[in-house]
Each structure stands twice: as C-alpha cells, then as structure tokens.
Simulated scan of single mutants.
Amino acid sequence: MAPSLDIVFAALADPTRRAILSMLLEDDMAVSDVASAFPMSLAAVSKHLQALAEAGLISQEKRGRITWCKLEPDALREGSVWMQGFGMMEAFDLDAFERFLERELTDPDAARPPD
C-alpha cells in the first residue's frame, strides 16, 4: 500500500529531508555519508531518514555493517499527478510551495479579496 499524500508532503516539508533527497539523486549513499553532510547528530539524521522511509521516498538496505539509502522516485508520482490537476505541468519548486502554504496557513485572510 502506497503512503498517503499527507505523509509524503509532510516528509517533503522539511528542508533537510529535501536536501537528503537531492543528495540521493546522484547515487545510493551510506547513512554515515548522508549524516556527514549535515551539522547535526547521526541520531537526528536517522530520524529524517526514517521519516523519508515511512513516506516511501527512500528505501534502506543493510549490506554488512553499513546501511545504505536509495531514492524511490516513484513515491513522488501520486503527488505529481495531484499537483498536475492544478495545472502545474512544469517542474515544481517545493521551496516556493512551502512558502505559499506557510503564508496561507498563517494568514488565511491574505488570499481573501477585500469586501
């Protein structure tokens, strides 16, 4: 069963997780290599990786003593289809989408036309 869009978008809402996904676009990476790219503890990075795995955006595989992370791009397909329903056929800027949602959620009157 595929993760819900809510779980996928919640995972994508964090800039660290988006950065991890960008890193995994290049190639599979060991957890320790992912962690070395961020100024946080291995435990903190592991929590981000767990959130991405729960959303189905990455998979993790133990090879010997090393856990490897692999991007699972098909997990984005349902979200992409959903966004295309709004006429967003071009590449989607998730950072801009996050800023838009933040504005809408913090000030719901901002989008309302004047009376």
Rank of each mutant, 00 (worst) to 15 (best):
E26I: 09
D6Q: 09
L52P: 00
S36W: 03
A19L: 11
I58S: 00
E61D: 05
A11N: 13
G56E: 04
E78Q: 14
I20D: 03
E104Q: 13
V45K: 04
T106H: 05
A53M: 13
E90M: 04
A75F: 06
L101P: 07
R77G: 11
M40Q: 07
R77L: 15
S32R: 15
L105S: 14
T67M: 08
A44P: 03
S36F: 07
S80Q: 12
A37C: 09
P3N: 08
S4N: 10
E61M: 07
A44S: 05
S46A: 13
L94K: 07
P108M: 07
P15A: 14
S46D: 15
D74C: 07
K47I: 10
W82K: 05
S32K: 15
R99G: 02
Q60E: 11
T67S: 09
R99T: 11
L52R: 01
G79N: 04
S22Q: 14
E61S: 14
L76V: 07
F100E: 10
D6P: 00
A96H: 11
L105Y: 09
L12W: 01
A19R: 06
K47C: 06
A35Y: 03
V31A: 11
G56Y: 01
R77Y: 14
G64Y: 05
V8G: 02
A53G: 14
A35K: 02
S46I: 05
A35Q: 02
L42Q: 12
A96W: 11
L42T: 09
D93V: 08
M89R: 11
L52N: 02
G85N: 12
P15C: 08
E72R: 12
R77C: 10
A75I: 01
R99N: 03
R63D: 05
L101N: 08
D107E: 14
R17A: 03
I20R: 04
E98F: 09
D33F: 04
